[in-house]
């Protein structure tokens, strides 16, 4: 089966600085890949390249069957609809309620209101929090709302940048369960995290990046079984 992410010698320049300096990486569907590395190693850049938010300036880069080189217009939109990125920023409108935000971003990605409601229920945002403006939420609650958006979009590729940040113990357990369920349903998951113990406990593979290149790639667990039909095909 074609991998969800296939990079060979991928280079990405931030100005004249090579934030990625020849990355080789394959991520299969159903895999949970933990990206480790010091600050500035290129973890966030790698995630943003996979989301087609940053260009891969040279090398081979295929994501969900799309060649990132020269990707424009409808093809880029089609790829991005299948990608869920949880970044440091929430990506939410502060003045809209949790329900409004989740419904808007879900519908933008082609999902429906039922997907949005199910995601809010899963993230335990279906009570009084659903009608609270995002700007009034705590950092952890905002993180949950961002996760609800990601879940409602039903992406085939999850790109998670420090996903545990800001979450309490219950939220972290919930997130780990979501990631496991996502992978079992056929999504490919790449998460960048400094929380080694927690992230390693859910990852099926650990990749260490330093100076914009992969310096270690090791299997730490078996890939969860892939359920059919629950996710969009990549």
């Amino acid at each position: 089966m074609e991998p969800a992410v296939h990079l060979r010698g991928a280079v990405s320049l931030l100005g004249r600085f090579p934030a990625l300096a020849g990355v080789d990486l394959d991520v299969a569907t159903g895999e949970i890949v933990l990206l480790r590395g010091p600050n500035g190693a290129g973890k966030t850049t790698l995630l943003r390249c996979c989301a087609a938010l940053l260009p891969v300036t040279s090398g081979e880069a295929m994501v969900l069957g799309h060649d990132l080189a020269g990707l424009t217009g409808p093809a880029r939109r089609a790829l991005r609809r299948q990608v869920g990125l949880l970044a440091h920023a929430t990506g939410l409108y502060d003045e809209l309620t949790v329900a409004d935000n989740v419904a808007f971003w879900a519908r933008a990605a082609g999902a429906d209101r039922a997907d949005a409601e199910a995601a809010m229920t899963r993230l335990e945002l279906d009570g009084r929090l659903r009608d609270v403006a995002v700007g009034r939420l705590s950092a952890g609650q905002r993180r949950r709302a961002s996760l609800a958006v990601l879940l409602a979009r039903r992406p085939a590729l999850w790109l998670l940048d420090e996903p545990h940040a800001g979450l309490d113990q219950a939220g972290r357990d919930l997130l780990d369960g979501l990631i496991g369920d996502g992978a079992r349903a056929g999504a490919a998951v790449v998460l960048a995290s400094h929380e080694r113990d927690r992230a390693e406990s859910i990852a099926t593979r650990t990749v260490t990046i330093a100076g914009g290149t992969i310096v270690d790639d090791s299997v730490v667990g078996a890939a969860p079984p892939v359920a059919t039909g629950a996710r969009r095909a990549p």
């Binding site: 989301a51 991005r80 609809r81 990125l85 920023a89 990506g91 933008a108």
Partner: peptide, 18 residues
């Protein structure tokens, strides 16, 4: 201004909206 706050610009690019 509302499209420039807290990662919304990236979310809009990633949304897949035309």
């Amino acid at each position: 201004a509302v499209e420039s706050t807290d990662g919304v610009a990236d979310a809009l690019r990633l949304s897949g909206l035309d």
